[in-house]
Design a protein around this nucleic acid. Structure first.
Lengths: 229, 229
DNA sequence: CGCGAGCTTGACGTTGTTCAACTAGAGTGG
DNA sequence: CCACTCTAGTTGAACAACGTCAAGCTCGCG
């Protein structure tokens, strides 16, 4: 991790809620209330059961948000690309993270002083409401995950993950940002089963896959497999 | 369901956040902004994928909050007793419920006009923050559920459910508010497996159980089973 | 008294995990 | 530059865990 202390919102590629609030209210603070940090691929951005010190906002790169279980047995809840709150779910409630976030590509985040943000949303309703909305969306995602992990078979879950990635990249042809093991963790199944199912899908001409390059050939069928799972 | 239109906060056994807000601000509205509704055991209080019309607050009774899956294959996320928000998770985000709630005992709820509540929390920060806090707690519960359903074996999950009930009733001796099937739905396992595991626990003198009356004999061991599960 | 809901147990089959072995490619140091 | 090592991916075989089906049981209620 590398820090960049003296960064201004004006230098930042992402115009986030905080920036918008400060602009409209014209209340930029005198002393800097945030800084940027860079993370290399595979570096952990925040860690389950560690204290929450800053609100974290993903500015650049791709990251996975996951729960760390026993025996390296993680569950990836979702992937993130900018702009996205990282420290959101833990923000309103917990003093410690209930999940971890790790960079899948070299990434950059903005770390905002918690006290500053608290002060800010006490003074500004719109900000609090927009934080809430983002919060609500994350919850909806997690609820869906809970359903699909417990009601679909592995075939349906892998199909879902492949469709999720297509949606993530807005394309039926993409390069997976995850290993086979991680693709398994998105669906809470073992690496081996994941590989077998990918092979199945390939042999059935539902997808083409070479290494991490995926092309969805029969999206309708894939969706059917995901839904009926 | 039976309605009771003309109810005042002063008549209500629960002094909820809304009541507290109205009291401190002394801004009780002229026209009633809420009413009470009674539900018999087994009656559904709100239904997955139906529109959210009111904020619902549980005043009396016990209810289960669950996701409806395919083939009567539900997952119970948690139980509720007063005071508890029912329509909370859907409140900030979704226009439709992402879950159902059904009364396990005869229950009474307070239904508050959504618009009224929105207006109220726009004017009152403390209310919005306390709604947020309750929201955050629910999310934490769901995260835990997601972890345990996917990482523990069935033995650990049933142990967890039994401990959950002990905590729910603040006693190691309680009468289960749920059937065997529903106890299974709390752990996302089949009714039969649930029964078998209860029998195992009884034979191992970890619990005593007769019908729905449970007494936890070896809480330490049960907790160990739940943790290691 | 009979019926149905809730509970219990046995037998069986399926699903998916785990262990193990092998391959290919990428990165590293002598 | 080449051997080495490590990671990622792939496949097979054996096993364990659960779900499903089926049958019977008890108790409360109409």
């Amino acid at each position: 991790m590398k820090l960049r202390r003296h960064i201004q919102c004006t230098d930042c590629p992402v115009k986030c809620d905080v920036h918008r609030t400060l602009t409209t209210c014209n209340t930029f603070p005198d002393s800097p209330m945030s800084f940027h940090a860079s993370f290399r691929k595979h570096e952990r951005i925040c860690r389950q059961s560690c204290g929450v010190s800053h609100a974290i906002y993903l500015v650049e790169g791709i990251a996975k948000l996951y729960i760390e279980g026993i025996n390296d047995h993680n569950i990836i809840l979702y992937l993130m690309k900018p702009p996205a709150y990282i420290g959101l779910l833990s923000f309103f409630q917990a003093p410690v993270y209930s999940y971890s976030v790790t960079a899948l590509e070299d990434s950059r985040v903005c770390m905002i002083e918690l006290d500053f943000l608290r002060q800010l949303y006490l003074e500004n309703h719109a900000l609090l409401l927009s934080l809430n909305e983002a919060f609500g969306k994350s919850v909806a995602l997690i609820m869906n995950k809970l359903i699909s992990l417990n009601q679909k078979n592995t075939r349906g879950r892998v199909a879902e993950s492949l469709l999720y990635l297509a949606d993530f990249y807005s394309s039926d042809r993409y390069r997976m940002p995850v290993t086979r093991k991680e693709l398994g963790e998105m669906s809470a199944i073992s690496e081996e089963t994941t590989v077998r199912l990918l092979t199945e899908f390939r042999k059935e001409h539902i997808i083409e896959i070479e290494g991490r390059d995926v092309q969805i050939m029969d999206k309708k069928l894939l969706r059917k497999i995901s839904d009926l799972g």
